[in-house]
Design a binder for these strands. Structure first.
Lengths: 62, 62
DNA sequence: ACATAAAGTAAAGTATTCTTTACTTTATGT
DNA sequence: ACATAAAGTAAAGAATACTTTACTTTATGT
């Protein structure tokens, strides 16, 4: 996600505006503190033009 | 999702065991009461062998 | 080195997701 | 028609996601 964002060359703040969440939400997700809702995941996938699976992966135990 | 489940011919209870949630969670998601977490979405996508985007879609306004 | 943008962190509060229990309704087979 | 499996519904509580505010640290350009 951080990588995809870097490719698009946008800041956390910009991305947060695009998907209508707070900047901290982006930051917290990027730092792996929690997994976003499916709605956010879909929005990000849309913006980055990749499948959801490419941004978020299941842990081996899941 | 209901359709995918029908194709696989499994019950809500069976699916709920597969992805380790309560049956009500499956039922509630199927009836559109709320959108699941990304982890659940990924687990379902994996079980049904389809992309997340094929199971859950963004509302037009999102 | 300095100013400023960007990112990291933290804590309290709100909102949403998920569980548990339990009961009702609908479908399926015999 | 009856028994049983499957699905629907509801409500209270636990867990997790998200917001808001605010402050700190790190990066970037001049």
């Amino acid at each position: 996600m951080r990588v995809l964002r870097a490719i698009k060359n946008i800041t956390q703040a910009e991305l947060s505006e695009m998907i209508q969440v707070s900047r901290q939400t982006i930051n917290t997700i990027e730092s792996g503190k929690y997994v976003p809702s499916t709605v956010l995941a879909l929005k990000m996938a849309k913006i980055f033009a990749v499948p959801v699976e490419e941004i978020f992966e299941l842990e081996p135990e899941d």
